[in-house]
Design a protein around this nucleic acid. Structure first.
Length: 217
DNA sequence: CTACCGATTGACT
DNA sequence: GTCAATCGGTAGA
């Protein structure tokens, strides 16, 4: 496969618009399933199909980083929808897309993708050959795609090197499931994790509280 | 300044 | 299944 120039890649895989992200966070989360995450670098392009996401809701959600108000870290979450929110945890990184209107403070965590392009590059970045584990988990995904703190605040809807693309629901995706979020210990468990059932690139335990099917719109 | 801890991962029983 | 390494963000003295 010939190496794509950035311009060509952006033409072939049109970026989702700001309008896409400026909606209810749960709607955006479910709508992101099956779409592509694409990162172009001079080293090559990596892309993958999103198979698992989690919604983090401002104000109503103690697990959300904006729950206790603005801090230096969560500043980007209060900004424009369609920007990247990248934060570090346990000495690794996690990648989110900011949702809803400016000042809201909600986001969708991209937890796992099924690798499509740039698999050799992902393997080199991860120091790992096993295809299944390349981007299965939020921090693994960031390592495979070369994402770190420098990408915090980056606009995903402009003409940059990092964006999301793809058509809406395809029947090939199979059923969508929901469950409680991974690693979030809440008294009331809410089902804000969404993933493709039976996809081998989904992270986390097989069984989670509140797991069940999601109906298509 | 110190102390605590998490939207994780990988190694291990 | 269990467990600890890891380190930046946050709150509090």
């Amino acid at each position: 496969m010939a190496r794509l120039r950035l311009k060509e890649a952006r033409a072939e895989y049109p970026a989702l618009s700001r309008r896409f992200y400026n909606r209810d966070t749960v709607d955006v989360a479910v709508d992101l399933l099956g779409r592509q995450l694409i990162h172009w670098t001079p080293q090559g392009m990596t892309s993958g199909r999103i198979v698992e996401v989690e919604a983090y809701l401002a104000h109503r959600d103690p697990a959300c980083h904006t729950y206790r108000g603005p801090t230096p870290r969560n500043e980007v979450m209060f900004g424009s929808p369609g920007r990247a929110y990248v934060y570090s945890i346990h000495a690794r990184y996690c990648f989110n897309t900011v949702t809803e209107s400016v000042g809201e403070g909600s986001a969708v965590l991209i937890r796992a993708v099924e690798p499509i392009a740039g698999i050799k590059l992902m393997q080199a970045r991860r120091g790992l050959l096993n295809l299944r584990d390349l981007a299965r988990g939020p921090a693994r995904l960031c390592e495979a795609f070369g994402l770190d703190r420098r990408y915090d605040g980056l606009d995903l809807t402009g003409s940059g090197r990092l964006w999301l693309s793809g058509t809406k629901w395809s029947a090939k995706m199979g059923r969508i499931m929901r469950s409680a979020r991974v690693g979030v210990t809440e008294p009331r468990h809410r089902c804000l994790r969404f993933f493709l059932a039976d996809n081998e690139y989904v992270s986390g335990p097989r069984k989670m509280p509140g797991m069940g099917p999601v109906k298509r719109n």
